[in-house]
Design a protein around this nucleic acid. Sequence first.
DNA 1: ATCAGGCGTGAATAGTTGTTCACTTCTTCA
DNA 2: TGAAGAAGTGAACAACTATTCACGCCTGAT
Lengths: 224, 224
Amino acid sequence: MVYRRTHQVVKRLAARRSAILAAARDAAAEGGMAAVQIAPVAVRANVAAGTVYRYFPSKAELISELIAEVSRDGLAAIRRAADAAPGPSSALAAAVTTVAVQVLSQRKLAWGILAEPVDVDVSVSRLASRREISGEIAARIDAAVRAGHLPAQDTALAATALLGALHESLVGPLAPENLDDPAKLRDAVQTVTLLALRAVGVMDARARGLVVQAVLPAKALVGA
Amino acid sequence: MVYRRTHQVVKRLAARRSAILAAARDAAAEGGMAAVQIAPVAVRANVAAGTVYRYFPSKAELISELIAEVSRDGLAAIRRAADAAPGPSSALAAAVTTVAVQVLSQRKLAWGILAEPVDVDVSVSRLASRREISGEIAARIDAAVRAGHLPAQDTALAATALLGALHESLVGPLAPENLDDPAKLRDAVQTVTLLALRAVGVMDARARGLVVQAVLPAKALVGA
DNA sequence: ATCAGGCGTGAATAGTTGTTCACTTCTTCA
DNA sequence: TGAAGAAGTGAACAACTATTCACGCCTGAT
């Protein structure tokens, strides 16, 4: 044994791996999952195509890790927002609003992570991603139910439905076009959050109040 | 000119075209869009691969027509259900329930039409399909708003959100597994319809009533 | 019956990308 | 410094299917 990985090398390897993942993420954010092709990603990361395969066994694996990473970041932001809220209903509102803001601030990426056609099978990591986020929302709904703020219901199904509503209306093909305008964007977030809260049984008047309170903090948190 | 298409030939051509489309539809219903490949579809339709191209200029066109056809059928069923309802709120409930039942009774097909990755670009026909259905739902929401049953709102956005909720919760990757059991299926339809109605502002108690009324007719209509 | 022309065929083609691997370059340590 | 082994390279490969097209068959008019 005349060669051992020195600390410096280990760091370089890790950096390269991150660079490749970051390149993939950038590509996805710019052109959707379709733009995440091995050769272009390699160029972005300043490595050769073959090198990508030193770090990821396949494109599917690369994309799966990308999905996991983005999902992890998203989940953390949702938790932060919800935990900062004063009560279960506010927490739910905060969580939903955060999802909406997130999705809107990275539309292409979100679409890619969630639903864009990919030539390799990434269904398991997409499933895991959805499960995490949906589980978090379900937990928040559940908390509100337990607090007596909402009627009893199938929280898992409700959470899934809420996410479907958010995604479809904000990044789906029928999503409004001109959401670059910050005012329109805020309106869309508020409208959809309101729908979501009412869907799980929040009274209209109360829901409107929660929505207003939730929007500003969510935007700040996601920006951070 | 010593050759003219005789009536018999015209009919045969039309029949073949329908056979190819039907084969594509069957394939999609069985194995999703992934199963809609030219060669297998041709086999199903009892023609050669090349023949498919006598009728459809490309796979994209074939799938686009498939989407349009399924969408057309679906829209008709939704209209029928809604028109048969006694009032605007019932009509909305009927429309939503019908979408749910449709989607559940042909899960693979619905998923294929809506969101499954396809190797060719079918985004425009998918967009059109969504637009039609969403427009119909929006119109029904609008009618209920005008009748004073619902608060004023962005009906287009609401309709899109509702469809997103239905699709994600019923045929998305997190959809409950065992929806083959008719009782579970009915429960799922009811739960989701209830969410949808509350989302647009129907009061909880009233929504529950509407849901119950809407389920049975919808199932019958879709079966027809 | 015969020919003119569209219709049907299916093997061959083509284009796209993920993946491999023989080779080169770099790093470590005696 | 040089040997040993790891990491990097990128051109070549592989696999998958949509699409083509030269050919033969069938249909319809004379």
